[in-house]
Design a protein around this nucleic acid. Sequence first.
RNA 1: GGUCUGGUAGCUCAGUUGGUUAGAGUGCAUGCCUGUCACGCAUGAAGUCGCGGGUUCGAGUCCCGUCCGGACCGCCA
Length: 587
Amino acid sequence: MYRTHTCGELTIGNANQTITLSGWLQRSRDLGGMTFIDLRDRYGITQLAFNMETNATLCTEARKLGREYVLQVTGVVKERESKNAKITTGDVEIIVTELKVLNASITPPFTIEENTDGGDELRMKYRYLDLRRNAVRKNLELRHRMAIETRNYLDKLQFLEVETPVLIKSTPEGARDFVVPSRMNEGEFYALPQSPQTFKQLLMVGGFDRYYQIVKCFRDEDLRADRQPEFTQIDCEMCFVEQEDILNTFEGLVKHLFKTVKNVDIPTLTRMTFAHAMKYYGNDKPDIRFDMQFKYLKGDGADLTAGKGFKVFDDAECVIAINAIGAATYTRKQLDELTDWVKRPQIGASGLIYARVSADGIKSSVDKFYDVDTLQHWATATTAKDGDLLLILAGSTNKTRKAMSELRLLMGTQLGLRKSDTFAAHWVVDFPMLEWDEETKRYHAMHHPFTSPKPEDIHLLNERAGEARANAYDMVINGVEVGGGSIRIHDAALQSQVFSLLGFTKEQAEYQFGFLMNAFKYGAPPHGGIAFGFDRLCSLFGGSETIRDYIAFPKNNSGRDVMIDAPSLISPEQMKELAIATVLNTK
RNA sequence: GGUCUGGUAGCUCAGUUGGUUAGAGUGCAUGCCUGUCACGCAUGAAGUCGCGGGUUCGAGUCCCGUCCGGACCGCCA
């Protein structure tokens, strides 16, 4: 028997018991006559004590042990002379009588401690060592708890977890597919699923009226801190439901997770239309932990800027202001920094106008053009009070909204309004069905090609398809899109009309999705669903920006696994067997 | 595809205007130390300054190229 207890459970109640522990040597303190060793496992740390007076042989042996040696010790639990309140086992120590080195270790490349000295890249390369650290382990424990509670909630509501295939068919819409060559079908390829979308719809046709799956999805696109080439979704689908049913069911899921995992009660989720979100936050996933909504000094029917000869505003399609409450103390230097920030190509504003509101009046960077009365109108329109700062951007509507959205988030961060332990969850609804793609000069589906239009907007599909809204919805928490879904089309005729809007010929639609349209001919029930980004949800609950912290073996920025060094070349024999050859792109 | 940013000891980083032998903390090794728990003290080893080229009397430092990270834009239905 390797152990009778774990390293996290012995207390004063176990005093005088003879026990056996196994674990890793976290750190040793050699005091000459005595040596202390911290023995670590998943559950905690227990101090081992060796004394030169009572057992010189063992103590001498203990002094030679290095970090991360795997040890098995037997000894007697004893109350400590000097206790350590920082750890749960801090009242006791083990007077070791037998010591066995189960395995030695070379010195690890970084220290395996709460505050490691290792950088990200190194820790990724030695991920199995990083996993020994408390912080990383806790994140994965959180993920486990989230998964268990998701299953608990959905199971109680009669959802069935059904697995769907991983080797499927490539589809042209959406993200790039990862493809897998088929040896048995020379020249043909499987694709890894971007999501189990069509399969879950087929499960609905198959009568599984409540399905879910915690499932890997694959998208071959460029990565970010919150994106991995393979990631996990909580994928769900329901029959005989309307949008309202889905919103209620999954609002329940999120509330359940907050309650059981974090013991937080979150209020009923508010709802916002896509149009409203874009207009007042410039963003389809607004962070509503703080207000700071857009006010239109020009555009949206208002014009508080005209006739003063300020060309920038006069030429602009819209002029948008936000009120940064209490930020009138911003110095000229800070404001210049903000200006530089919005002018970066990623933000793309051409400049930033500001106005400080104070007891002495309003001072703006456009005093030359606008008199006190006009500035006062601006302040009134934005409900700015003494001590507040107006930040104003002007230009074309879409660009200005987008830039202002980024500025709003920056100001929210700078003013401490985006605390990671505060949660504001809401729904964004009524997304447009289609999005015009300038590059390809055609519409593509904003959500996906199976999303049903709102019934009252179906008539728009023929004439003004861009205006048609979909029965699609996103759940947003703290400005992060954690989930999204839609009511699906269950009518073969409407589905083929949508395919044709998306530029598919009949033949292409048949080739790509014939199986689905066929299935719809056999009595497809009305259905809809949603999918949550499980990794993002975990990182949100854990208070971290990056989902890599919540994935046991993540990939780096360029999609490499630096630990196993993948992807990698394969042998010419493998290539031949698969009937494939590579033609490298020249730069 | 683009913008920004970084690469110096095992690790985390400093390194001024281009100027003598490239430093610190930590880790590691050795020694001392009987109540430590980030133990303490002392000594020591440890460097292809990412790589290649250029400018210069002289390059960690400046220039060009390249490789490898990171953040972001595009992209991600």
